[in-house]
Design a protein around this nucleic acid. Structure first.
Lengths: 144, 144
DNA sequence: TGTTATTCGGATAATTTTATCCTATTTTAA
DNA sequence: TTAAAATAGGATAAAATTATCCGAATAACA
C-alpha cells in the first residue's frame, strides 16, 4: 500500500511526537532502533520530512529531531504520505490509466472510488497526536 | 496500489474475456496493443495467470489466450490480484509490522481495517464479466 | 513435410526502490 | 580551542520491479 520509506516516515513521526510532548529531542539512532529501520535510509526520509516542514531537526551535540508540540495534533497522516509517496495512492487510477475520470473511466473506476475516498478521508482525518497517544498508553506498537 | 504487473494482468484478463464471449482467442500482440503494455513483460504475466488456472493458453498458429466462457462470471478480481501481487494488500499491516493484529496492533491498525476490508470485499465481489461488459458497451476504457 | 504463427522459458538489461558508507557541517561543552 | 555528538548530503551498492531479447517448443495448414 505505502512504500517502505513512507512506513518508516509515519512510524518515525509518531515516535518523535511522543518525545516532543516531553520536550525531548530524539536522535536518528534512537528513532531507527525504536521503529526497527535501517539508520541511513531513515536519515534520508527524515531529511525529506524536514524539507516539507513536517518535523524539525537540530544539528550538533544535543541535537536531534522534534516536532512543534502545538502542531502535533494538527499534522495529518495525509501530509506525511504526501510528502514521501505523493498523492497517487488516492488520486491515481487503480489500473494506471493516464486519464481516468467520470468521462473516461477505467473498468474499476467506480468500484475503486469508495475505497480510495475512504483511504483519503482516513489519512486526512487522522492526526499524529492520536497515534502517539496509543503508543504511549501501550495499546499500539511501532515494531515486531 | 497494485503493481504494474497486476494492472496489466487485470486489463489483459478483461480483454481476453471480451473476446472469449465471441469464441475468439487473442494473441499476446493483440493484448499488449489493446491495453498499451510492453509485449514481453505482458507475456510473463499471462504465463503466470495460466499457471494459476485463471486463463488458458493455446500454442501454435491460431493459438492465443482465452478464458472458459462459463467461468468468466465467476472469476473474481481478487483471484487475479492474488495470483500476481499476493494477498499483502488486504492482509498485510499498513505500516509493515511483521505481526499486526487485535492483540498487537500497529498505530493505524483499526483505522486501516475498514479501508482494507472495503478493498477486500470489492475485489472479492467484482467479477470479470461485469468489467468486460462495461468495455463492450463503451462506458469504460482499457487505455489512455 | 516445411513454413508460419504462436506461446514458453531462460538470460539479460534498465529502472526504481531500498540500503549503506563516508565526509562535511554544525553545535555543545569541557 | 578542541573534542565529541549530531544532522546533511553526495556517492555508491544491493535488491526488487519492470522490461527486452532470443531460441525452443508447439500447432495449423498449404
Amino acid at each position: 500500500m505505502f512504500s517502505k520509506a513512507c512506513e518508516y516516515g509515519i512510524k518515525a513521526s509518531i515516535f518523535i511526537s511522543l518525545n516532543s510532548y516531553e520536550e525531548k529531542r530524539v536522535s536518528l539512532k534512537a528513532i531507527a532502533k525504536e521503529i526497527n529501520s535501517p539508520e541511513a535510509f531513515t536519515a534520508k526520509i527524515l531529511q525529506d520530512l524536514v524539507r516539507h516542514d513536517i518535523i524539525n531537526s537540530v544539528k550538533g551535540a544535543h541535537g536531534g529531531f522534534e516536532i512543534d508540540k502545538n502542531a502535533i495534533s494538527s499534522i495529518k497522516l495525509s501530509q506525511i504520505v504526501n510528502a514521501i509517496d505523493g498523492d497517487d495512492i488516492y488520486k491515481g487510477c487503480g489500473l494506471g490509466l493516464h486519464t481516468c475520470d467520470e468521462n473516461h473511466p477505467c473498468p474499476v473506476h467506480d468500484k475503486f472510488k469508495s475505497v480510495r475516498d475512504e483511504l483519503k478521508n482516513m489519512l486526512e482525518q487522522t492526526n499524529l497526536e492520536e497515534l502517539a497517544l496509543d503508543i504511549k498508553s501501550g495499546i499500539a506498537f511501532l515494531k515486531t
